[in-house]
Design a protein around this nucleic acid. Structure first.
Lengths: 229, 229
DNA sequence: CTTTTAGTGAACATTGAGAGAACAATCAAG
DNA sequence: CTTGATTGTTCTCTCAATGTTCACTAAAAG
Protein backbone atom coordinates (compact mmCIF):
# COMPACT_ATOMS: atom_id res chain seq x y z
CA UNK A 1 0.00 0.00 0.00
CA UNK A 2 2.74 2.43 0.83
CA UNK A 3 6.15 3.03 -0.57
CA UNK A 4 9.16 3.02 1.68
CA UNK A 5 9.36 6.77 1.95
CA UNK A 6 5.67 7.23 2.48
CA UNK A 7 5.80 4.71 5.24
CA UNK A 8 8.75 6.36 6.84
CA UNK A 9 7.06 9.73 6.78
CA UNK A 10 3.84 8.41 8.19
CA UNK A 11 5.69 6.86 11.09
CA UNK A 12 7.50 10.09 11.73
CA UNK A 13 4.33 12.15 11.78
CA UNK A 14 2.68 9.64 14.04
CA UNK A 15 5.57 9.73 16.46
CA UNK A 16 5.63 13.48 16.59
CA UNK A 17 1.94 13.76 17.22
CA UNK A 18 2.18 11.27 20.01
CA UNK A 19 4.88 12.83 21.96
CA UNK A 20 4.55 16.51 21.37
CA UNK A 21 0.98 16.76 20.13
CA UNK A 22 2.17 19.26 17.57
CA UNK A 23 2.16 18.53 13.88
CA UNK A 24 5.57 18.66 12.31
CA UNK A 25 6.07 21.34 9.70
CA UNK A 26 7.26 20.53 6.20
CA UNK A 27 10.63 21.83 7.19
CA UNK A 28 10.91 19.40 10.06
CA UNK A 29 9.74 16.50 7.97
CA UNK A 30 12.21 17.43 5.32
CA UNK A 31 15.02 17.11 7.87
CA UNK A 32 13.65 13.92 9.33
CA UNK A 33 13.69 12.28 5.92
CA UNK A 34 17.01 13.80 5.15
CA UNK A 35 15.83 15.69 2.13
CA UNK A 36 17.01 19.02 0.90
CA UNK A 37 13.68 20.39 -0.16
CA UNK A 38 10.15 20.58 1.07
CA UNK A 39 8.75 19.68 -2.30
CA UNK A 40 9.49 16.03 -1.81
CA UNK A 41 7.65 16.13 1.45
CA UNK A 42 4.80 17.83 -0.28
CA UNK A 43 4.43 14.99 -2.70
CA UNK A 44 4.65 12.34 -0.05
CA UNK A 45 2.02 14.10 2.02
CA UNK A 46 -0.25 14.33 -0.98
CA UNK A 47 0.20 10.63 -1.62
CA UNK A 48 -0.59 9.75 1.97
CA UNK A 49 -3.66 11.90 1.88
CA UNK A 50 -4.84 10.40 -1.36
CA UNK A 51 -4.53 6.95 0.08
CA UNK A 52 -6.48 7.91 3.12
CA UNK A 53 -3.77 7.64 5.75
CA UNK A 54 -3.79 11.21 6.85
CA UNK A 55 -6.09 14.14 6.68
CA UNK A 56 -5.23 17.77 6.60
CA UNK A 57 -6.88 21.14 6.58
CA UNK A 58 -6.03 22.63 3.23
CA UNK A 59 -3.84 25.71 3.32
CA UNK A 60 -3.27 25.48 7.02
CA UNK A 61 0.07 25.10 8.60
CA UNK A 62 0.77 22.13 10.81
CA UNK A 63 -2.71 20.77 10.43
CA UNK A 64 -2.11 17.07 9.98
CA UNK A 65 -4.04 14.22 11.43
CA UNK A 66 -3.26 10.52 11.14
CA UNK A 67 -6.28 8.47 10.18
CA UNK A 68 -4.83 5.03 9.74
CA UNK A 69 -1.74 3.16 10.67
CA UNK A 70 0.28 1.28 8.14
CA UNK A 71 -0.41 -2.41 8.43
CA UNK A 72 2.45 -3.10 10.76
CA UNK A 73 0.54 -1.22 13.37
CA UNK A 74 3.52 -0.83 15.60
CA UNK A 75 3.55 0.11 19.26
CA UNK A 76 0.99 2.76 18.71
CA UNK A 77 -2.43 3.43 20.04
CA UNK A 78 -4.85 1.87 17.68
CA UNK A 79 -7.91 3.74 16.58
CA UNK A 80 -6.13 7.05 16.54
CA UNK A 81 -8.12 10.18 16.34
CA UNK A 82 -10.73 9.72 13.76
CA UNK A 83 -12.84 12.73 14.08
CA UNK A 84 -12.60 16.21 12.90
CA UNK A 85 -16.25 16.66 13.27
CA UNK A 86 -16.30 16.39 17.02
CA UNK A 87 -16.81 12.80 17.96
CA UNK A 88 -19.18 13.15 20.85
CA UNK A 89 -19.19 9.48 21.66
CA UNK A 90 -15.46 9.19 21.78
CA UNK A 91 -14.50 12.53 23.18
CA UNK A 92 -16.93 12.45 26.00
CA UNK A 93 -17.33 9.02 27.36
CA UNK A 94 -19.47 10.20 30.15
CA UNK A 95 -23.08 10.92 30.64
CA UNK A 96 -24.81 13.16 28.24
CA UNK A 97 -27.26 14.85 30.53
CA UNK A 98 -29.48 16.40 27.96
CA UNK A 99 -30.62 14.09 25.22
CA UNK A 100 -30.17 15.49 21.77
CA UNK A 101 -33.23 17.50 20.90
CA UNK A 102 -35.84 15.24 19.45
CA UNK A 103 -35.55 16.59 15.98
CA UNK A 104 -32.00 15.47 15.79
CA UNK A 105 -30.70 12.02 15.13
CA UNK A 106 -27.22 10.73 15.68
CA UNK A 107 -25.99 8.52 12.93
CA UNK A 108 -22.72 6.62 12.76
CA UNK A 109 -19.94 7.92 10.61
CA UNK A 110 -18.65 4.83 8.91
CA UNK A 111 -15.65 6.23 7.14
CA UNK A 112 -14.86 7.55 3.74
CA UNK A 113 -16.00 6.54 0.33
CA UNK A 114 -14.27 7.23 -2.91
CA UNK A 115 -14.42 6.09 -6.44
CA UNK A 116 -12.33 3.00 -6.68
CA UNK A 117 -11.35 2.70 -3.07
CA UNK A 118 -12.94 0.48 -0.51
CA UNK A 119 -14.77 2.09 2.34
CA UNK A 120 -12.53 2.38 5.28
CA UNK A 121 -14.59 0.77 7.94
CA UNK A 122 -14.49 2.75 11.11
CA UNK A 123 -17.52 1.17 12.71
CA UNK A 124 -18.96 3.14 15.54
CA UNK A 125 -15.97 5.39 15.85
CA UNK A 126 -17.93 8.56 15.84
CA UNK A 127 -21.42 9.80 15.56
CA UNK A 128 -22.69 12.69 13.56
CA UNK A 129 -25.74 14.57 14.72
CA UNK A 130 -28.09 15.30 11.90
CA UNK A 131 -31.36 17.18 11.76
CA UNK A 132 -34.12 14.63 11.47
CA UNK A 133 -35.66 16.73 8.75
CA UNK A 134 -32.89 15.73 6.42
CA UNK A 135 -33.60 12.06 6.74
CA UNK A 136 -36.62 9.99 6.01
CA UNK A 137 -37.49 6.80 7.79
CA UNK A 138 -35.14 3.89 8.06
CA UNK A 139 -31.60 3.35 9.20
CA UNK A 140 -28.97 5.79 8.10
CA UNK A 141 -25.24 6.22 8.24
CA UNK A 142 -22.77 8.82 7.08
CA UNK A 143 -19.74 8.64 4.84
CA UNK A 144 -17.21 11.27 4.08
CA UNK A 145 -16.88 11.72 0.37
CA UNK A 146 -13.44 11.54 -1.07
CA UNK A 147 -12.67 12.47 -4.63
CA UNK A 148 -14.42 14.41 -7.29
CA UNK A 149 -16.29 11.81 -9.29
CA UNK A 150 -19.65 13.31 -8.38
CA UNK A 151 -18.91 17.01 -8.59
CA UNK A 152 -21.44 17.63 -11.31
CA UNK A 153 -24.11 16.38 -8.98
CA UNK A 154 -23.03 18.95 -6.44
CA UNK A 155 -21.21 16.43 -4.28
CA UNK A 156 -17.73 17.63 -3.46
CA UNK A 157 -14.66 16.18 -1.88
CA UNK A 158 -15.01 16.34 1.89
CA UNK A 159 -18.79 16.46 1.96
CA UNK A 160 -20.63 14.11 4.25
CA UNK A 161 -23.07 11.85 2.48
CA UNK A 162 -26.03 10.75 4.56
CA UNK A 163 -26.99 7.32 3.34
CA UNK A 164 -30.12 5.32 3.95
CA UNK A 165 -29.41 1.64 4.29
CA UNK A 166 -31.30 -0.29 1.66
CA UNK A 167 -30.74 -3.02 -0.91
CA UNK A 168 -32.89 -1.55 -3.56
CA UNK A 169 -32.88 1.60 -5.53
CA UNK A 170 -34.57 3.02 -8.54
CA UNK A 171 -32.95 4.07 -11.75
CA UNK A 172 -31.36 7.47 -11.51
CA UNK A 173 -30.87 7.45 -7.77
CA UNK A 174 -27.48 7.97 -6.24
CA UNK A 175 -26.37 4.87 -4.41
CA UNK A 176 -23.52 3.41 -2.45
CA UNK A 177 -22.63 0.45 -4.61
CA UNK A 178 -20.29 -2.33 -3.63
CA UNK A 179 -18.68 -3.87 -6.68
CA UNK A 180 -17.60 -7.51 -6.46
CA UNK A 181 -17.39 -7.18 -2.73
CA UNK A 182 -14.41 -4.90 -3.13
CA UNK A 183 -14.93 -1.35 -4.13
CA UNK A 184 -17.61 0.84 -2.71
CA UNK A 185 -18.47 3.89 -4.71
CA UNK A 186 -21.04 6.61 -4.76
CA UNK A 187 -22.66 6.73 -8.18
CA UNK A 188 -25.83 7.13 -10.15
CA UNK A 189 -27.51 3.78 -10.62
CA UNK A 190 -28.94 2.77 -13.97
CA UNK A 191 -30.11 -0.58 -15.30
CA UNK A 192 -29.76 -1.61 -18.91
CA UNK A 193 -31.00 -4.96 -20.18
CA UNK A 194 -29.94 -7.04 -17.26
CA UNK A 195 -26.74 -5.11 -16.62
CA UNK A 196 -26.05 -2.38 -14.14
CA UNK A 197 -24.43 0.86 -15.05
CA UNK A 198 -22.79 3.11 -12.50
CA UNK A 199 -22.54 6.66 -13.76
CA UNK A 200 -20.22 9.19 -12.26
CA UNK A 201 -21.18 12.85 -12.39
CA UNK A 202 -17.94 14.05 -13.84
CA UNK A 203 -17.14 14.08 -17.50
CA UNK A 204 -13.60 13.06 -16.67
CA UNK A 205 -14.73 9.63 -15.50
CA UNK A 206 -16.26 6.79 -17.44
CA UNK A 207 -19.51 5.03 -16.67
CA UNK A 208 -18.93 1.48 -15.56
CA UNK A 209 -21.05 -1.48 -16.53
CA UNK A 210 -21.32 -4.66 -14.50
CA UNK A 211 -23.34 -7.83 -14.36
CA UNK A 212 -26.22 -7.48 -11.95
CA UNK A 213 -24.62 -10.02 -9.63
CA UNK A 214 -21.45 -8.05 -9.30
CA UNK A 215 -23.09 -5.01 -7.81
CA UNK A 216 -24.62 -4.81 -4.40
CA UNK A 217 -26.51 -1.70 -3.39
CA UNK A 218 -25.67 -0.83 0.17
CA UNK A 219 -27.70 2.29 0.50
CA UNK A 220 -28.98 5.32 -1.26
CA UNK A 221 -28.13 8.93 -0.81
CA UNK A 222 -30.61 10.67 1.46
CA UNK A 223 -28.85 13.88 2.36
CA UNK A 224 -25.68 15.85 2.28
CA UNK A 225 -23.75 18.01 4.72
CA UNK A 226 -20.97 20.34 3.85
CA UNK A 227 -18.79 22.59 5.88
CA UNK A 228 -17.02 25.70 4.68
CA UNK A 229 -14.08 27.06 6.55
CA UNK B 1 -2.72 18.90 14.15
CA UNK B 2 -1.71 21.93 16.15
CA UNK B 3 0.95 24.56 15.98
CA UNK B 4 3.17 25.20 18.94
CA UNK B 5 1.25 28.19 20.23
CA UNK B 6 -2.09 26.57 19.74
CA UNK B 7 -0.89 23.56 21.63
CA UNK B 8 0.52 25.67 24.41
CA UNK B 9 -2.71 27.56 24.82
CA UNK B 10 -4.81 24.42 24.78
CA UNK B 11 -2.73 22.92 27.53
CA UNK B 12 -3.02 26.05 29.56
CA UNK B 13 -6.78 26.18 29.26
CA UNK B 14 -7.00 22.53 30.06
CA UNK B 15 -4.90 22.93 33.15
CA UNK B 16 -6.90 25.85 34.41
CA UNK B 17 -10.18 24.09 33.91
CA UNK B 18 -8.92 21.12 35.78
CA UNK B 19 -7.70 22.79 38.84
CA UNK B 20 -9.88 25.82 39.26
CA UNK B 21 -12.84 24.78 37.18
CA UNK B 22 -13.02 28.27 35.74
CA UNK B 23 -12.13 29.22 32.22
CA UNK B 24 -9.24 31.61 32.02
CA UNK B 25 -10.05 35.04 30.65
CA UNK B 26 -8.33 36.40 27.58
CA UNK B 27 -6.28 38.59 29.83
CA UNK B 28 -4.96 35.62 31.77
CA UNK B 29 -4.22 33.67 28.64
CA UNK B 30 -2.44 36.64 27.22
CA UNK B 31 -0.12 36.67 30.22
CA UNK B 32 0.33 32.93 30.22
CA UNK B 33 1.52 33.02 26.64
CA UNK B 34 3.56 36.09 27.28
CA UNK B 35 1.81 38.24 24.74
CA UNK B 36 1.13 41.93 24.89
CA UNK B 37 -2.33 41.90 23.47
CA UNK B 38 -5.47 39.86 23.69
CA UNK B 39 -5.90 39.83 19.95
CA UNK B 40 -3.31 37.15 19.55
CA UNK B 41 -5.18 35.01 22.02
CA UNK B 42 -8.34 35.67 20.13
CA UNK B 43 -6.87 34.28 16.97
CA UNK B 44 -5.44 31.24 18.65
CA UNK B 45 -8.79 30.52 20.24
CA UNK B 46 -10.43 30.81 16.86
CA UNK B 47 -7.95 28.38 15.38
CA UNK B 48 -8.54 25.88 18.16
CA UNK B 49 -12.23 26.20 17.68
CA UNK B 50 -11.94 25.74 13.96
CA UNK B 51 -9.96 22.59 14.47
CA UNK B 52 -12.55 21.25 16.85
CA UNK B 53 -10.54 21.24 20.05
CA UNK B 54 -12.61 23.65 22.01
CA UNK B 55 -16.05 25.06 21.95
CA UNK B 56 -17.25 28.40 23.16
CA UNK B 57 -20.31 30.50 23.52
CA UNK B 58 -19.89 33.59 21.42
CA UNK B 59 -19.83 36.87 23.30
CA UNK B 60 -19.69 35.23 26.65
CA UNK B 61 -16.88 35.68 29.04
CA UNK B 62 -14.96 32.70 30.26
CA UNK B 63 -17.08 30.27 28.33
CA UNK B 64 -14.63 27.72 27.04
CA UNK B 65 -14.95 24.01 26.88
CA UNK B 66 -12.26 21.56 25.87
CA UNK B 67 -13.56 18.95 23.47
CA UNK B 68 -10.43 17.07 22.57
CA UNK B 69 -6.96 16.64 23.85
CA UNK B 70 -3.99 16.99 21.64
CA UNK B 71 -2.68 13.57 20.74
CA UNK B 72 -0.07 13.57 23.41
CA UNK B 73 -2.75 12.86 25.97
CA UNK B 74 -0.36 13.94 28.65
CA UNK B 75 -0.63 13.54 32.42
CA UNK B 76 -4.15 14.73 32.28
CA UNK B 77 -7.31 13.09 33.35
CA UNK B 78 -9.27 11.30 30.69
CA UNK B 79 -11.10 13.28 28.06
CA UNK B 80 -12.89 14.91 30.95
CA UNK B 81 -15.96 16.76 30.02
CA UNK B 82 -14.99 19.73 32.04
CA UNK B 83 -17.92 21.56 30.67
CA UNK B 84 -17.59 24.58 32.80
CA UNK B 85 -19.47 27.01 30.78
CA UNK B 86 -19.21 30.22 32.65
CA UNK B 87 -18.65 31.04 36.26
CA UNK B 88 -19.08 28.74 39.20
CA UNK B 89 -22.56 27.98 40.34
CA UNK B 90 -22.05 29.82 43.57
CA UNK B 91 -21.35 33.07 41.85
CA UNK B 92 -24.63 33.02 40.06
CA UNK B 93 -27.40 31.35 41.92
CA UNK B 94 -29.89 31.99 39.22
CA UNK B 95 -30.80 31.09 35.74
CA UNK B 96 -28.28 30.12 33.17
CA UNK B 97 -29.10 32.19 30.15
CA UNK B 98 -27.85 29.81 27.51
CA UNK B 99 -27.89 26.09 28.02
CA UNK B 100 -24.55 24.40 27.60
CA UNK B 101 -24.69 23.90 23.90
CA UNK B 102 -25.53 20.41 22.99
CA UNK B 103 -24.32 19.13 19.71
CA UNK B 104 -27.15 20.83 18.03
CA UNK B 105 -27.95 24.42 17.46
CA UNK B 106 -31.21 25.78 16.21
CA UNK B 107 -30.85 28.51 13.70
CA UNK B 108 -33.58 30.57 12.13
CA UNK B 109 -34.62 29.90 8.58
CA UNK B 110 -34.90 33.34 7.11
CA UNK B 111 -36.33 32.50 3.74
CA UNK B 112 -35.03 31.96 0.28
CA UNK B 113 -32.27 33.56 -1.63
CA UNK B 114 -31.81 33.70 -5.32
CA UNK B 115 -29.82 35.59 -7.82
CA UNK B 116 -31.64 38.78 -8.46
CA UNK B 117 -34.44 38.32 -6.00
CA UNK B 118 -34.67 39.82 -2.57
CA UNK B 119 -34.69 37.49 0.33
CA UNK B 120 -38.21 36.77 1.29
CA UNK B 121 -38.12 37.70 4.88
CA UNK B 122 -39.71 35.14 7.07
CA UNK B 123 -38.11 36.25 10.30
CA UNK B 124 -38.35 33.68 12.98
CA UNK B 125 -40.84 31.65 11.05
CA UNK B 126 -39.12 28.38 11.49
CA UNK B 127 -36.02 26.99 13.06
CA UNK B 128 -33.68 24.49 11.59
CA UNK B 129 -31.71 22.24 13.89
CA UNK B 130 -28.12 21.93 12.77
CA UNK B 131 -25.21 19.92 14.12
CA UNK B 132 -22.93 22.30 15.97
CA UNK B 133 -19.98 20.73 14.24
CA UNK B 134 -21.06 22.25 10.97
CA UNK B 135 -20.91 25.75 12.30
CA UNK B 136 -18.12 27.77 13.75
CA UNK B 137 -18.63 30.48 16.28
CA UNK B 138 -20.93 33.38 15.80
CA UNK B 139 -24.50 33.86 14.85
CA UNK B 140 -25.91 31.89 11.99
CA UNK B 141 -29.04 31.67 9.95
CA UNK B 142 -30.27 29.53 7.13
CA UNK B 143 -31.53 30.31 3.66
CA UNK B 144 -33.05 28.06 1.09
CA UNK B 145 -31.20 28.40 -2.16
CA UNK B 146 -33.25 29.14 -5.20
CA UNK B 147 -31.85 29.02 -8.69
CA UNK B 148 -28.81 27.54 -10.28
CA UNK B 149 -26.31 30.36 -10.28
CA UNK B 150 -23.93 28.48 -7.98
CA UNK B 151 -24.22 24.96 -9.33
CA UNK B 152 -20.57 24.76 -10.23
CA UNK B 153 -19.72 25.32 -6.60
CA UNK B 154 -21.86 22.36 -5.68
CA UNK B 155 -24.76 24.48 -4.48
CA UNK B 156 -28.00 23.36 -6.00
CA UNK B 157 -31.52 24.67 -6.14
CA UNK B 158 -33.31 23.73 -2.96
CA UNK B 159 -30.22 23.33 -0.82
CA UNK B 160 -30.11 25.02 2.53
CA UNK B 161 -27.25 27.45 2.97
CA UNK B 162 -26.03 27.93 6.52
CA UNK B 163 -24.79 31.46 6.76
CA UNK B 164 -22.67 33.08 9.39
CA UNK B 165 -23.71 36.65 10.04
CA UNK B 166 -20.80 38.95 9.37
CA UNK B 167 -20.04 42.16 7.57
CA UNK B 168 -16.69 41.15 6.33
CA UNK B 169 -15.40 38.46 4.09
CA UNK B 170 -12.22 37.61 2.33
CA UNK B 171 -11.74 37.35 -1.37
CA UNK B 172 -12.95 34.11 -2.76
CA UNK B 173 -15.44 33.37 -0.04
CA UNK B 174 -19.06 32.76 -0.82
CA UNK B 175 -21.19 35.48 0.69
CA UNK B 176 -24.72 36.71 0.99
CA UNK B 177 -24.44 40.11 -0.60
CA UNK B 178 -27.08 42.77 -0.54
CA UNK B 179 -26.80 45.02 -3.58
CA UNK B 180 -28.03 48.58 -3.21
CA UNK B 181 -30.26 47.51 -0.38
CA UNK B 182 -32.39 45.60 -2.83
CA UNK B 183 -31.16 42.34 -4.14
CA UNK B 184 -29.62 39.69 -2.00
CA UNK B 185 -27.61 37.06 -3.76
CA UNK B 186 -25.29 34.23 -2.92
CA UNK B 187 -22.04 34.71 -4.78
CA UNK B 188 -18.29 34.50 -4.67
CA UNK B 189 -16.86 37.77 -3.41
CA UNK B 190 -13.86 39.32 -5.08
CA UNK B 191 -12.37 42.77 -4.79
CA UNK B 192 -10.74 44.57 -7.68
CA UNK B 193 -9.20 47.99 -7.32
CA UNK B 194 -11.83 49.49 -5.11
CA UNK B 195 -14.70 47.71 -6.77
CA UNK B 196 -16.49 44.60 -5.75
CA UNK B 197 -17.13 41.75 -8.08
CA UNK B 198 -19.76 39.13 -7.42
CA UNK B 199 -19.01 35.94 -9.29
CA UNK B 200 -21.58 33.29 -9.93
CA UNK B 201 -20.46 29.69 -10.26
CA UNK B 202 -22.22 29.02 -13.48
CA UNK B 203 -20.83 29.81 -16.86
CA UNK B 204 -24.29 30.88 -18.00
CA UNK B 205 -24.23 33.89 -15.71
CA UNK B 206 -22.07 36.98 -15.81
CA UNK B 207 -19.96 38.32 -12.98
CA UNK B 208 -21.30 41.59 -11.69
CA UNK B 209 -19.21 44.55 -10.65
CA UNK B 210 -20.32 47.20 -8.21
CA UNK B 211 -18.93 50.13 -6.29
CA UNK B 212 -17.88 49.09 -2.84
CA UNK B 213 -20.63 51.22 -1.35
CA UNK B 214 -23.33 49.45 -3.26
CA UNK B 215 -22.62 46.06 -1.80
CA UNK B 216 -23.25 45.05 1.75
CA UNK B 217 -22.05 41.69 2.94
CA UNK B 218 -24.68 40.14 5.17
CA UNK B 219 -23.00 36.89 5.89
CA UNK B 220 -20.76 34.22 4.58
CA UNK B 221 -21.46 30.63 3.71
CA UNK B 222 -20.55 28.33 6.56
CA UNK B 223 -22.28 25.12 5.65
CA UNK B 224 -24.74 23.41 3.41
CA UNK B 225 -27.54 20.93 3.86
CA UNK B 226 -29.25 18.98 1.13
CA UNK B 227 -32.02 16.45 1.05
CA UNK B 228 -32.62 13.83 -1.55
CA UNK B 229 -36.04 12.36 -1.97
C1' DC C 1 -27.00 55.18 33.69
C1' DT C 2 -22.06 54.88 34.07
C1' DT C 3 -17.82 52.39 34.72
C1' DT C 4 -15.13 48.64 34.38
C1' DT C 5 -13.84 44.47 32.41
C1' DA C 6 -13.97 41.11 28.72
C1' DG C 7 -14.02 39.94 24.18
C1' DT C 8 -14.02 41.29 18.93
C1' DG C 9 -11.83 42.36 15.16
C1' DA C 10 -9.36 45.67 11.69
C1' DA C 11 -4.70 47.00 10.32
C1' DC C 12 0.14 46.43 9.67
C1' DA C 13 4.66 44.10 9.76
C1' DT C 14 7.54 39.97 9.93
C1' DT C 15 8.69 35.31 9.35
C1' DG C 16 7.75 30.66 8.50
C1' DA C 17 5.05 27.29 5.93
C1' DG C 18 2.93 25.18 2.02
C1' DA C 19 1.95 24.89 -3.13
C1' DG C 20 3.52 23.66 -7.23
C1' DA C 21 6.31 23.92 -11.72
C1' DA C 22 10.49 22.14 -13.74
C1' DC C 23 14.12 18.88 -14.42
C1' DA C 24 17.24 15.07 -13.42
C1' DA C 25 18.22 10.43 -11.47
C1' DT C 26 16.81 5.73 -10.18
C1' DC C 27 14.68 1.48 -10.71
C1' DA C 28 11.39 -2.23 -11.77
C1' DA C 29 8.57 -4.21 -15.45
C1' DG C 30 7.69 -5.29 -20.23
C1' DC D 1 15.71 -0.31 -24.33
C1' DT D 2 11.48 2.14 -23.19
C1' DT D 3 7.95 3.37 -20.00
C1' DG D 4 6.17 4.87 -15.91
C1' DA D 5 6.34 5.47 -10.98
C1' DT D 6 9.10 7.23 -7.28
C1' DT D 7 12.33 10.10 -5.66
C1' DG D 8 15.85 14.11 -5.10
C1' DT D 9 16.46 18.88 -5.92
C1' DT D 10 16.01 24.01 -6.99
C1' DC D 11 13.22 27.90 -7.29
C1' DT D 12 9.39 30.92 -6.92
C1' DC D 13 5.14 32.63 -5.13
C1' DT D 14 1.44 33.12 -1.94
C1' DC D 15 -0.50 32.88 2.31
C1' DA D 16 -0.82 31.36 7.16
C1' DA D 17 0.88 32.16 11.83
C1' DT D 18 2.41 35.41 14.92
C1' DG D 19 3.26 39.86 17.48
C1' DT D 20 1.36 44.21 18.26
C1' DT D 21 -1.64 48.53 18.49
C1' DC D 22 -5.89 50.56 18.56
C1' DA D 23 -10.76 51.24 18.36
C1' DC D 24 -15.16 49.31 19.31
C1' DT D 25 -19.04 46.39 21.40
C1' DA D 26 -21.12 43.52 24.98
C1' DA D 27 -21.72 42.11 29.58
C1' DA D 28 -21.26 42.63 34.49
C1' DA D 29 -20.89 45.76 38.39
C1' DG D 30 -21.88 49.93 40.88
Amino acid sequence: MLTRKQHELLRFIQARLEDSGISPSFEEMKDALDLKSKSGVHRLISALEERGFIRRLPNRARALEVLRQPDDAGPTRVPATVSVIDAPAAARPVARSIPPANDVIEIPLHGRIAAGVPIEALEGQSMLPVPAALLGSGEHYALEVSGDSMVEAGILDGDFALVKRTNTARDGEIVVALVRGEEATLKYLRRENGLIRLDPANAAYEPQIYAADDVEVQGKLAGLLRRYH
